[in-house]
Design a protein around this nucleic acid. Structure first.
Lengths: 342, 342
DNA sequence: GTGTCGTGCTAAACCGATTTAGTGATCTTT
DNA sequence: AAAGATCACTAAATCGGTTTAGCACGACAC
């Protein structure tokens, strides 16, 4: 038999006082509202005794604060986002915030529905790694007063806080790493949600190639929710371009698919095909040979994103300044893959 | 300037009707309550025009249903849980449920606080991979009428639905796999949150060893939130037990740490040290040589967990039957590691 | 003895929905 | 033409909190 939860009325009735008084006491306004110490003690004791815990829906409805933060990413099962989610959750928890999360799978419709869900649920703020095509909705939210921090991907001319890594520079470094090791026919396998000429990671690669007078060779894919589907695509690319010496991968899962493709074609890394991945992963560290990566500062991204949001939540709307933080990536050279002469 | 959200009152006032009527219409009770088709149309149009979406806090407060499901796991950044979370989220979303999640880090206090959060927030149900030591709290919740589905780990004599894999059998199979390939000195590296003699994975290993007249050698660790800390532990074990031929790992992250340890000691897999891991991971598939694992049926676990919960939410409390589902693991033999004669 | 002030507390409105219990108008029946 | 049924809605209570406005009482001043 389900027993009814204890409400503030139960406390009040039990002590024959008004629920106003109970509320004041529980919200630390006892002094301000001149409630006697004796009564305060009595109430707190009764609260303990009956194990009263305020209904957060009612609180949220009245105060407009839910202490819920919405977190929207591409795919929570991607270790990159999962790690960030974990760090954000942890910090949120320490500040008495809960996380509602959702994976957009780069689906515009889904993303929009989640945004609506955030508002109808009354989240206090949200941290979003946005998909393309939800710019308008996000702007509407911002204008309606929602506290938003973007990360991983940004929109031009959006007046909110953004935490970004320098994708262009990171990719430039990754590409140059291969060039410095003597590779010339270097291809890029990347995701293009937007137009390729707008994707910083693609641009960084192209700049590095051009700067060294090499010809860029970009293979851009749309997002697929079954990540395994990339393996065949990559196999085909390798088979069709048999002068390819090296590949740069734009995301961790593309690189993982790349590894599978390379292995199943019986090619050796790095002699038959050298690779560099964007975004680190346990797998790249432990793989033999270990894989050079451009790592994103996951802890810092999470840290700044949640800090910024929490700060925002404590600032009057009028006093806010929107920052765009640009973090640097780190090249982690692994293996010893100087190009060997075949 | 933050614009106020549209409420049901706005719709009502705008059309000069009662909000009761609006509520009836929006909840599909127009026919039953004999609201004229003309008015129904007018209301729906106005709802569209003003982009009205009901406040879910108010709805939740009144109806006692929030359409929120709580998901509690050990660590959302562990791919095992992250994958399950993703699948659960997806299915929940399709049924108009949202997910609030939290990582317990096997911390009793944290877990208890999260459970409380679930109730004060009024979640409709929760899916929990429980930590040890929160049995009492979970029972209290169940008695208070909360809908709970447990997975990954269970408590004896708890009257709720549980989705489990057969850990004992899985570990037996994993161990026997190594025995069949000719290894004799096989150690187990596992987590022991409870007492080792109560951990099914440890028991399965021991049974396999004894059945084949071999001596079990169990190394049980407590949970550490910094997973990297296991590497040194494992290195020491390998160094101190130099007759060890093979290791079975109880979790994916222990196996990953094991790989790191083995590599950093310059040992070769499987010749110097053969291994089998419990719970698959991209890394084990792609690693050279690839690593034999006992895989858990992640999709099925997620599927059954959320299905069971959703079904439970639609069933009268009195009609409920609690199931314990036992799923089998799958041995995925990889590599070709017959023990070589040294 | 009346006005003022401080003390200690509370009644009632409110947040935004749902739900219960009707109400007044029109139509049927006899 | 009175009684009952049907129709098309609605006022008010409710969920469980917070917040506003204010009341009753005693002390003190004059």
């Amino acid at each position: 038999m389900a027993k009814a939860r204890v409400s503030i009325n139960d406390i009040a009735k039990n002590l024959n006082i008004s629920k106003t008084t109970v509320s004041f006491i529980l919200n630390g306004k006892a002094k301000e509202k001149r409630i006697s110490d004796k009564l305060v003690k009595k109430v707190l004791l009764k609260v303990q005794e009956l194990e009263y815990h305020p209904n957060q829906l009612a609180q949220g409805l009245r105060t407009g604060k839910t202490n819920i933060i919405g977190l929207m990413v591409e795919d929570i099962s991607n270790p990159f986002y999962a790690s960030i989610a974990k760090l954000i959750e942890d910090k949120a928890y320490n500040n008495n915030y809960k996380i509602i999360y959702c994976s957009t799978e780069n689906n515009k419709t889904r993303a929009k529905e989640f945004l609506r869900m955030f508002t109808t649920l009354g989240v206090d703020g949200c941290i979003i790694a946005p998909t393309m095509g939800i710019e308008k909705e996000i702007n509407t939210l911002i204008n309606a007063g929602m506290n938003i921090v973007l990360f991983d991907r940004k929109f031009e001319n959006m007046s909110t806080d953004v935490v970004m890594v320098n994708n262009r520079e990171g990719m430039y470094t990754a590409t140059e790493h291969l060039i410095n090791r003597g590779y010339k026919n270097i291809g890029l396998i990347a995701l293009a949600l937007d137009k390729p000429e707008k994707e910083d990671r693609i641009i960084g690669y192209q700049e590095a190639m051009k700067h060294h007078h090499l010809t860029p060779l970009v293979f851009a894919f749309p997002f697929k929710s079954n990540l395994h589907d990339y393996v065949d695509d990559i196999k085909q690319i390798i088979e069709k371009n048999n002068d390819l010496e090296a590949l740069v991968f734009g995301t961790n899962y593309l690189a993982i698919s790349g590894l599978e493709a390379i292995t199943s074609l019986n090619l050796k890394i790095p002699d038959d095909m050298a690779i560099v991945a964007f975004d680190d992963h346990d797998l790249f560290r432990i793989h033999k040979p270990d894989i050079t990566v451009v790592a994103q500062p996951i802890e810092t991204i999470a840290q700044i994103a949640i800090d910024t949001l929490l700060r925002k939540l404590q600032t009057k709307e009028s006093d806010r300044v929107n920052d765009t933080i640009n973090l640097s990536t780190t090249l982690i050279p692994r293996g010893s893959s100087q190009k060997s002469k075949r």
